[in-house]
Design a protein around this nucleic acid. Structure first.
Lengths: 201, 201
DNA sequence: TCACTGAACGCGATATATCGCGAAGGAGAA
DNA sequence: TTCTCCTTCGCGATATATCGCGTTCAGTGA
């Protein structure tokens, strides 16, 4: 798997986050996840070794509390940050670029999904109910299960259409990684297992 | 969310796992996940407080190592296990039942998906290629992107068909929980974000 | 100059522990 | 008996830290 951060980039980015204000490890994980719009969440195994290294280098200080360990940037750390301001600028623009690209694709996908959803609804209306002004009274007492099923169908369709569009957009620009399809399969298997598990009586 | 284990069931089940052999916390998490066929993975926040409580009650002993903390059942623990053997039997049969039900649904889903997949393929063959014996030589050099896209489409369709079938099966037996559709939406959003993120250049 | 190599790096998996919320259960009052 | 309050419980979120795999990079020796 291609790492999100190139060699040494995370180190610098963490330093820049600590330059804003002192933070503890978990806070840094959340800050990073936030800046990536939730699409990248560095694991603890990424953050804590890097923080330990930065402390070893004297660029941050560690103040261990009862439950939280606060990391603070030192003057040496600020000097390092100033010396490599150009690198940091590159990293930051890469981050914002990737987030913007993602946002673009999401927006496109949503628009297309809206179109297909409207088309679906129109089609359903044509097939099912000649007159929508008077809601159809169902005689069988089966609660709202049908509504849930219809909603689930819509969600599934929406997702399928969106991801199809996403993948086609991506494939137009560059070759799809070999890992994408197996990964997609794996994740969908998980979702299915999870939903099924939540239905267990 | 309905808990997987009822009040006090996890406590007894942990004790029964420790009766087999001493284990450390993470090992118990993995053991539980394994017995549930991967559909339920108790979080650390579930296991460790329970183990601490069991130790407090004197039913297990804790031996802290450098990186692992081994828990061992005591005689009092074995006595408790013997005293509540009936409860344990109930819990165990519930677990195996739920796993079997899940396996049934998965099997059914897979069968149905295979059917629809074969139908899709047959349909595609009818529409696209009158002669499949000689593979079609594409003149444009676009690598295998089309293959990946087709595979992704299949995976998506398969998933959609399976889950539709699952939900209909469930809705036939009982009302779908209100949380199912929002939860499905949430999980699919996550999958999409994750796949998109993996495509980021 | 370039191939080799060991150190550094990113990161998921492993490992432990607490906090706080919402639900379930039990004890005691009304 | 039933209602109420307090405790316990399951569990996701919060919090920290190490290990090992695969990759990258910088130094060095041919």
């Amino acid at each position: 798997m291609t790492p999100t951060f190139a060699h040494g980039s995370l180190r610098l980015y963490l330093l820049s986050l600590l330059a804003e204000r002192p933070r503890h490890g978990y806070e840094l994980i959340q800050a990073l996840s936030e800046r990536f719009g939730g699409t990248y969440s560095p694991s603890a195994g990424t953050i804590y070794p890097r923080l330990a290294k930065l402390e070893e280098e004297g660029l941050v200080t560690k103040t261990a509390g009862e439950r939280k360990t606060v990391y603070e940037i030192t003057d040496a750390g600020r000097a390092e940050l100033a010396a490599r301001a150009d690198d940091l600028r590159d990293i930051e623009s890469e981050v914002t670029d990737s987030v913007r690209r993602l946002a673009d694709e999401v927006r496109t996908g949503v628009t297309e999904a809206m179109k297909s959803l409207r088309a679906d609804l129109a089609s359903a209306a044509r097939h099912a109910a000649p007159d929508m002004s008077k809601p159809h009274q169902d005689t069988r007492p089966h609660g709202d299960s049908n509504r849930s099923l219809r909603e689930a169908d819509m969600v599934l369709n929406e997702f399928r259409q969106q991801l199809r569009a996403d993948l086609r957009t991506q494939a137009y620009r560059a070759q799809l990684p070999d890992a994408t399809v197996p990964e997609l399969r794996r994740q969908l298997d998980e979702v299915r297992a999870s939903i099924l598990a939540s239905l267990r009586p």
